[in-house]
Design a protein around this nucleic acid. Structure first.
Lengths: 217, 217
DNA sequence: ATTTTAACATACATGTTTGTTTGTATAGCT
DNA sequence: AGCTATACAAACAAACATGTATGTTAAAAT
């Protein structure tokens, strides 16, 4: 039954896709390799040929998701300080849009959120943690540049703004993914970010608007 | 070997506590009932006497965590509208303080976050979801009262402020619990909430402060 | 054309976890 | 005092998942 190299690569991919679906539906630790094999239309032998074990399969699945956010953040250096906040906001909105439209990434993230990282899955957690740390550091340096040039509201610091943004986006995505995507991620995210970033910017002195607020009562 | 009723209740509690520790360390699905039994100093027979199976044990563990947040939120009705925002802020800060100091609750929440809810654990997820929904609804009605009386910044709506607060606190706790409590939850939370709630309040027209921001550059 | 080897399927051996059953000593009731 | 239900421990049986070893076929290599 030896297949051509192209066919072999095809079955490998079908195994990865099947693992994504099965892990997403049953959870990583509840899913058996036989479930994955049946979903892929092969036997466990094929899985053990392409991957050394279940942990390895999961790691390969995790590696298959690309992380293009890194260089997007790094690109803020080219931005003038006056546009940094708008740039970060657009970047975040774009990232949410992409997540909202990419079911593949949704499933991967959901799997990562729900899996328990006990024992041999620790390296995944550590890698995710270090990626997150780099993202946070990039964001904070960007906010610091905006702050140094007076484009950050006195109410916020680079550190606090970074954390507020990070936690809000994290909480938003977590709730959306874990609780059945019960709202429009892109729309709600865009709206929330718009208001949060409005509070990041120095106040424009607008007496009429402020008066309007109180007249609403 | 029949024990007195008090002793039996004692072993039941020791099983629950052992389950909490073992589930926390190894994850729910990776932990075996024998692990729990050994940690409790009993045999599996004792567990099967007090609980029908592993799922039931987990559900009882989930039920053992009290949820005193409910009536705390309901109490906002007694507050004058001018103090609603300060009340919600204090309530949230208190809740964070309690989580930061209660290792029992930390472990329960961590277990809930990391567990995979596949198949027979669905009722837990659904119950958690409905509790969350009630909390969000309570918060939103409180914000609406503040908004109706002009105590909410025009930049925010009751809906958006509720979500921003909810997502930020959720993201904060999730990162703290899942990533090894690498920062001071109470302090960071208090600081972030202070700034977020500052942006919730109508702007005080303060030209000198606004000028100060730009003079920092 | 043969040989080799890649790409699996099949079968098996093993350890693990679960659920149940049986045994047993004693607390509590009569 | 004797009976019985309780609160477990210990042993057992079955299912299940994993890993490995072996078989089989066809694609490459020679």
């Amino acid at each position: 039954m030896r297949r051509t190299k192209a066919e072999a690569e095809e079955t490998r991919n079908s195994i990865l896709h099947a693992a994504e679906r099965v892990f997403y539906e049953k959870g990583v630790s509840n899913a058996t390799l036989d479930d994955v094999a049946k979903a892929a239309g092969v036997t466990r032998g094929a899985i053990y040929w392409h991957f050394s074990n279940k942990t390895d399969l999961f790691l390969e699945l995790y590696n298959s998701v690309s992380l293009p956010l890194e260089d997007m953040i790094a690109r803020d250096i080219e931005q003038p300080a006056s546009g940094v906040l708008a740039f970060i906001e657009k970047l975040t909105v774009d990232w949410l849009d992409e997540l909202a439209s990419d079911e593949h990434r949704q499933r991967i993230f959901t799997i990562l959120l729900r899996c328990s990282y006990g024992g041999d899955l620790m390296p995944v957690l550590e890698r995710q943690q270090e990626v997150d740390d780099r993202h946070v550091a990039s964001l904070e340096s960007a906010f610091a540049r905006a702050g140094n040039e007076g484009y950050l509201n006195a109410n916020w610091t680079p550190h606090s703004a970074t954390r507020a943004l990070w936690w809000m986006v994290g909480g938003l995505c977590t709730e959306w993914l874990l609780f059945g995507r019960r709202f429009d991620l892109a729309a709600e995210g865009r709206d929330g970010l718009k208001r949060l970033f409005a509070s990041f910017r120095p106040a424009t002195i607008d007496i009429t608007a402020s008066a309007d607020v109180h007249s609403m009562a």
